[in-house]
Amino acid sequence: MQADGRFQVRAAPEVVFAFFSDPRQLLDCLDDPHTVDSVEADRFTGTITTGVAFIRGTFRFTGRYEERIPGQPVQARIHGSGLGSGVDAVLLADLTAADPGTVVGWRADIVLTGPVASIGERLVRSTIDKKTAALFEKARERLEAAPPP
């Protein structure tokens, strides 16, 4: 399942890059209750309480940055499990300098398995669209609210 989008943010590319390279800042944009338990080098772990419709529960996740080089797209791979279900996601943010700020093209490739995918099958698509869009919208808001470096 894929979701994607593009937005322009009034922040310099290096600021946006730093934001997307920091799992704590990025994951803090999630609307769902969550924790970031550890951040070590390229890897991070935590939990998120989420779900589809009434099927909700806590997922523990591990993440790893696969690409995090300035000037290139930032890409992170996340694996989570909970509710007898699994989620594997690849998040990608492609940053392009613009005037003013930065254009962020983002894409999320998500594979859900287990009851969340089965029971919520007809609601998964819209839920993922909604949650990913909200994540990146909040990221934009945070970036624009942040004081200039």
Binding site: T113, A117, S118, E121
Partner: peptide, 9 residues
């Protein structure tokens, strides 16, 4: 589905 998720459980 293509991932082997059962639809209709």
């Amino acid at each position: 589905d293509e991932n082997g998720n059962m639809r209709g459980n």
